[in-house]
Computed example of a mutant assay.
Amino acid sequence: MELKSILSKDQVNQFFKDGFLKIESFYDKQKDIEPIQYHIYCIIGLLLKKYNIDFQQLPYSSLDFDSGYQELIAADRKIGGEVYDALKHVPSFLRLVCNEKHDAIVAQLRQTTLPGIANGGYGIRIDNPKEEKYRAGWHQDYTSQFRSLDGIVFWSPLIKITEELGPVQLCTGSHKDGLVPVHAQDPRYPDKSGAYGLVFKDEANLVRRYPIAAPLSEPGDLILIDYQTIHASGYNNSNRSRWSMQMRYFNYEEPTGIRIGWKGSFAAGNAIKEIHPELMF
């Protein structure tokens, strides 16, 4: 099936030069974003009742869709994980994951007729204020996702991202230098596990080599990130959780993906040392 090219020549060039690309107003707020926000609001309401938390949600609005969430995690931080898991099954979100415009972008950037969606590679992140345990440190998505080497992350916020909320941080041009070896557990944060526990070899000096970009964004915007671009979640220094969506696509025709059988990484239960022992140090 032939897909229509969506990105301009300048946008394509910028993606390949920087390893990421911000596209303003890519999604329709009313059609694509607000149904997801409303589902989040409803799930929070159900859990407030389930756990008998005495809090009256604000009337629904796209600006306050997360009303009651801080009260949930204040009562028990584990309830935040229940929200996170529930949101993976919301139809409005899954419809966005499978948006045909995503297929077209992958086809255009990767010159493929076979784009794929990484199972276990999509979800809605909730980065809570001043919480380090689940903050994603410096990483490349390929190492924690696999599937194929030239995948693309579709990153989009559900609230307006300010400096205080902590925008995603990107090492400009780092994708050109290939994959970086990792250690499976960051000694600085022994409570982090899985993909959150990964740390680069000589990380501080590695990151200093690149200009850091931290683009601000708002609902409807899209940031495309190359699987090999070094990036990290920003620090949330606000009093509100940072809500964002990640949807990961890959190219079936890429040789590394074919070699490993398009296997996934942590979410698929595979250890890096088993699939890519050369990436461990």
Rank of each mutant, 00 (worst) to 15 (best):
I43T: 15
H39Y: 08
Q56M: 09
Q57W: 06
F26T: 11
G45F: 03
S25K: 13
L46W: 00
F26V: 12
F65Q: 03
Y41C: 07
N52K: 13
Y38H: 14
F55Q: 04
Q30S: 13
F26L: 10
Y60I: 10
K31H: 10
Q56R: 09
Q56T: 12
S25V: 07
K49M: 02
I40F: 05
Q37V: 08
K29I: 11
L46F: 00
P35C: 13
Q30A: 12
Q37M: 11
I53D: 08
L47F: 00
K29C: 02
K29F: 06
P59L: 08
P59M: 07
I43Q: 15
I43N: 13
Y27Q: 11
Q37A: 04
G45Q: 04
D54Y: 06
S61C: 07
S25Y: 02
L63Q: 12
I44D: 04
F65D: 00
I43C: 13
F26Y: 15
I36D: 05
K50F: 03
L63A: 10
Y38R: 14
Y41Q: 04
K31T: 15
G45T: 08
E34H: 10
Q57C: 09
I36R: 02
Q37I: 03
D28A: 12
I36A: 10
L63E: 13
I53W: 07
Y27L: 13
I36T: 08
K31L: 14
N52E: 14
I44Q: 01
C42M: 06
K31W: 05
E34F: 07
S61V: 05
Y51I: 06
I40C: 04
Y38N: 11
I53L: 09
P59V: 04
Y38G: 00
S62L: 06
N52T: 13
S25L: 10
I33P: 04
F65K: 00
L63T: 01
Q37N: 12
Y51C: 09
Q57P: 09
K29M: 06
F26N: 14
